[in-house]
Simulated assay, not measured.
Amino acid sequence: MIRHIVMFQLASSDPAEKDAQVARAKTELEALVGVVPGLRSMEVTRNGAYEGANMDFMLVADFDDLAALEAYQVHPEHEKVAAYIGTIRSGRAAIDFEV
């Protein structure tokens, strides 16, 4: 199994706007479970401490294998969510590892 962790910094400085953006991203990303083959689980979480010093939100997703992660990256439903996140983020960091 491959665990995919991505952290995002949002471009907005307005806390209410950030909350709304994360809520939308969470809803759309977590809805991909059962849609994207090989995606076992997805959890999206808003940062809870040190606002401004930490990333704003993160996702943790588990995939059957590396091939499933690679298929997810180009899946049309993921691409829709990624396009939205691309309009609201100013930074991104990711790591993938076997579990």
Score class of each variant (00 low, 15 high):
E17N: 07
P15F: 10
A31P: 05
P37I: 07
E43I: 09
A11P: 04
I95L: 12
Q21W: 04
P76A: 01
K80L: 11
H75D: 13
F97Y: 15
V74C: 00
T45Q: 08
D19A: 15
K80Q: 14
K80W: 07
F63T: 02
K26V: 06
Y72F: 12
K80P: 01
S12G: 09
D14V: 11
M55H: 12
S13Y: 05
P76K: 03
E17M: 08
V33E: 01
H78F: 08
E51V: 12
H75F: 04
V35Y: 05
V99H: 11
Q21Y: 08
L69C: 05
L66I: 10
A49G: 13
V33Y: 03
V6T: 00
L66F: 11
Y72W: 01
I95S: 13
S12W: 02
M1W: 04
A67Y: 02
D64Y: 10
S13P: 03
L29C: 13
A67W: 01
G86V: 00
Q9K: 14
A67N: 09
A68V: 08
A16E: 15
A82Y: 04
L66A: 10
V36A: 05
P76Q: 00
A94V: 11
L29A: 10
A68K: 00
L69R: 14
E51W: 12
A16S: 12
E77Q: 11
L59F: 15
A94I: 09
V60R: 12
A53Y: 15
Q21N: 10
M1R: 11
P15Q: 12
V81G: 06
G86T: 00
A20K: 12
D96Q: 01
L69T: 02
D62K: 06
F97S: 08
R40T: 10
A94W: 07
E98R: 10
E30G: 07
P76I: 04
N47Y: 00
M42K: 00
L59G: 02
V36R: 07
V99E: 10
L66K: 13
D14Y: 07
E43G: 11
I85Y: 01
G48Y: 12
R46D: 09
R92E: 11
V22T: 08
E70M: 11
L66G: 06
V36E: 00
K18C: 05
N47V: 03
I95C: 14
Y72G: 01
D19S: 15
L69Y: 08
D56A: 01
D14S: 09
A16L: 13
D64P: 08
N54R: 15
L29I: 14
L69M: 08
I95T: 14
V81D: 05
L29Y: 03
M58F: 10
F57H: 02
A25W: 03
T27L: 13
R89G: 00
M55I: 02
I5Y: 08
G86C: 04
H75Y: 02
A16W: 05
V6I: 08
E98Q: 15
D56M: 02
E51G: 14
M7L: 13
I95A: 13
Q9E: 14
T87A: 08
V6C: 04
A25Q: 06
N54D: 15
Q73V: 06
A23T: 14
E98Y: 10
D64S: 13
G91P: 09
L59D: 00
M42C: 15
H75L: 03
